[in-house]
Design a protein around this nucleic acid. Structure first.
Lengths: 225, 225
DNA sequence: CCTTCAAATCTGTTGGACAGGTTATCGCGC
DNA sequence: GCGCGATAACCTGTCCAACAGATTTGAAGG
């Protein structure tokens, strides 16, 4: 049986319609029934896709009237993203540079012992995940998130959470799941993170910011050689 | 009729179940049928909610086996987190320092003529609002937002949008609405913004970043002497 | 105790149905 | 001809009943 749920295919199909027919913001989509007919699936499936699209801010449904384009998928990073669009979406990395590097600096400056322990634990989780053969995106995020938390400033967490779903989508899109990670990549990723954590532990603000910047830069290179 | 779709309520309900019953990562959720019964809705509605939860990375469905918790909502999902969980502090200003200053720098570097016009228009709107006697928070935000947009990087807008609600709360809390603004305050705020816009117009990155930083610093002082 | 196999359970998907909101059309009165 | 209101066509939101295919469970049998 197909791996992908039909509603996922329908999601991609609707995104494709918006892009290929160049539907402007405010334009009306085909009705659920018509979409169902087009894709050869039931209306329930189309609805599942539309609910997701609406929650991603791409469409908006008005009862009785239809569904409308709320923002173009290419302008909304959350959209299902073909490889060809990666370059523009890598923009979220740019924000990470300024945001996370500064978060690392602040974390190094004023982390508490408890926050530090939390960061160390996140590092341990990431290490474990990387050394197994499973994708470690969740653990990766968790560590970065704990560093942001160590600033003691919840607003950093908030900005971080707003950003991460896109970063994750980029990561997922850029990684060939079927192929396992070469050991040297695991080694490199571990070391990069460990340098950051060490700088925060040593309360070295500039070192932490620099290490974070380096890590992000390398990560971007890994995704987009 | 109810504003919120049932599937949105179901989404929130399932999140609530995960949190209140303290379901660990990997734990199994009640079946779709049972959830439907619990919420008093049809299975189709529950499915719409589950598809969203899965696409948000919170749950994962395994055909024949059930749906499972993939990551705890409280560690992800900013959307459904009540503000009370993230104590709102002046800390959001700290993030603005790094985020908006860098946005101003980038805007100065690579704004297009069209984006510049958009910024200028935002400045005109703010000027008008400030010279009248009404609160100008909306226009203030709009100008800052247009500057973020002038980076050409939508991720900046996203981070900005995630942050602004708190900033606005702080602003409203700090301003005595009953008292009108003294002319010298209006004068100062106008000049600060104009310096930023001028630097972006002149494509002066360092100047733009510095002016933005200065403006934010002064703004913070005004709110919290 | 372990294996095998069938029943129970669960997700994935379909079709049909109805309520209630929105849009467009048509015909009527002026 | 032109405005205007009724009405039909269309659309989303929701429910129900059903079946296919995957997984888990548990009991029978060695």
């Amino acid at each position: 049986m197909n791996q992908l749920r039909l509603s996922d295919q329908a999601y991609a199909g609707i995104v494709e319609i918006i892009k290929s027919e160049d539907l402007e913001v405010g334009a009306r989509l085909p009705s659920e029934a018509r979409l169902a007919e087009t894709f050869g699936v039931s209306r329930a499936i189309v609805r599942e896709a539309l609910v997701r699209l609406a929650s991603d801010g791409i469409t908006e449904a008005r009862r009785g009237a239809g569904s409308f384009v709320k923002s173009r998928p290419s302008e909304r990073l959350a959209a299902f993203m073909p490889m060809s669009e990666l370059p523009t979406t890598l923009g979220s990395y740019e924000v990470r540079f300024v945001l996370e590097a500064e978060a690392a600096r602040l974390a190094a400056t004023r982390r508490t012992a408890q926050e530090m322990a939390h960061v160390e634990e996140g590092m341990a989780l990431l290490r474990e995940a990387l050394l197994s053969s499973e994708p470690a995106h969740a653990e990766d995020m968790e560590l970065h998130r704990r560093i942001a938390a160590a600033t003691g400033n919840p607003a950093f967490l908030q900005a971080f959470d707003a950003l991460w779903p896109d970063v994750e989508k980029i990561m997922r899109a850029g990684v060939d799941i079927s192929r396992s990670r070469p050991p040297e990549v695991v080694e490199t990723m571990l070391r990069e993170h460990e340098v950051i954590v060490a700088a925060i532990r040593a309360q070295d603000p500039d070192g932490a910011a620099l290490a974070m910047r380096w890590h992000l830069w390398e990560g971007r290179r890994r995704l987009m050689p």
